[in-house]
């Protein structure tokens, strides 16, 4: 069930992503759609760069931009790992996290995202329900009078609900919503990050990595192991809610400011949200990198 707040002036704030289409039983939410757009844009950029990539000492255009991004990220990762081999291993994950998150954050600031509405599929079905029930009631009226009374009461209730719904206009949902303003997206990212933390830990320490969690050498170490297990779950939760909270809060802030003072006033907040979007992407990427690096260090020392 979609929970939403629809203000009188058209302010639409929903804490969860809303379905804009269905493929079978799978609901396609607006955040899924937006993150698909972001993915398509990133892949298009990669294809464009690949097609004009050449061996030169003076790169221009897209190649220059791509080299700048990749070199900056490479230097950033190397400054934390201090090891070229580890840098090359972590680089694709960290850079993809950063680029995917930053563009998912920033796409929420574009005009059209959150302001183009579609009829919510679930609600469209609900609006038809009273008519169907009415016809059923009419058919049953001939058979049982008591049952008819109950059905009429129910139909009246549904009609009232439909009338209430109609007074607010048709149920509409935004077609696009920033990918990272959806808890499912941030949870997916957090799970990927924590999963690869374990993968790198095992890769560098083999089974010795699990000594971090299960250690019977002393009661203190055993207790520390339990804390480590808890901390892995805490990582998922903190990753998920930090990113979601910041981006969703930014969207709410912008929606409220836009509803209150639509001209000029939102501008500084847009600047702030651009900054927040960048910082949150950087924080996620940096924390993932630190966790990868920590997991890949030897636990013998």
């Amino acid at each position: 069930m979609v929970k939403k707040i629809m203000a009188a002036n058209g302010l639409h704030i929903s804490i969860s992503a809303e379905p804009v289409a269905h493929i079978g039983d799978i609901a396609i939410t607006n955040s899924m759609l937006t993150s698909l757009v972001v993915s398509a844009l990133l892949i298009t950029f990669a294809v464009a760069v690949r097609s004009q990539l050449k061996q030169t000492n003076k790169p221009t255009g897209l190649q220059n931009l791509a080299e700048w991004i990749i070199e900056s990220m490479h230097s950033f990762i190397y400054s934390i790992t201090g090891d070229l081999k580890k840098t090359r291993l972590f680089f694709p994950f960290i850079t993809t996290f950063f680029l995917w998150i930053i563009f998912n954050n920033w796409i929420g600031l574009l005009p059209g995202v959150g302001s183009i509405y579609v009829i919510e599929p679930e609600k469209a079905v609900v609006e038809v329900e009273p008519v169907a029930l009415e016809s059923i009631v009419q058919a049953q009226e001939l058979e049982e009078e008591e049952v008819v009374h109950e059905d009429v009461a129910q139909a009246e209730h549904e009609e009232t609900a439909a009338a209430e719904e109609e007074s607010h206009g048709p149920a509409k949902v935004p077609l696009f919503r920033a990918g990272t303003a959806d808890l499912n997206t941030t949870l997916a990212l957090a799970l990927i990050s924590v999963f690869f933390t374990q993968v790198f830990g095992i890769k560098h320490n083999s089974l010795g990595y699990f000594k971090k969690f299960i250690n019977f050498s002393s009661p203190i170490m055993f207790f520390v192991g339990i804390l480590e297990i808890i901390s892995e779950f805490a990582k998922v939760i903190s990753f998920t809610f930090r990113l979601f909270g910041n981006i969703f809060a930014g969207e709410v802030l912008l929606a409220v400011i836009l509803a209150l003072v639509p001209v000029i006033a939102p501008m500084p907040f847009y600047g702030l949200e651009l900054f927040v979007g960048f910082i949150q992407a950087l924080v996620f990427a940096m924390l993932s990198l630190v966790f990868f690096n920590m997991a890949s260090e030897s636990h013998e020392h």
Binding site: I26, S39, D182, N184
Partner: peptide, 30 residues
């Protein structure tokens, strides 16, 4: 709403982008 299908969709989505970026962007530029 935390829905497993959406989480799996986003993991696959990220994986596809990751693969594309690795083969089309990171490897050649590096």
């Amino acid at each position: 709403d935390i829905q497993l299908t959406q989480i799996i969709f986003q993991i696959i989505n990220f994986g596809v982008v990751f693969g594309a970026l690795v083969f089309l962007l990171y490897k050649p530029v590096l």
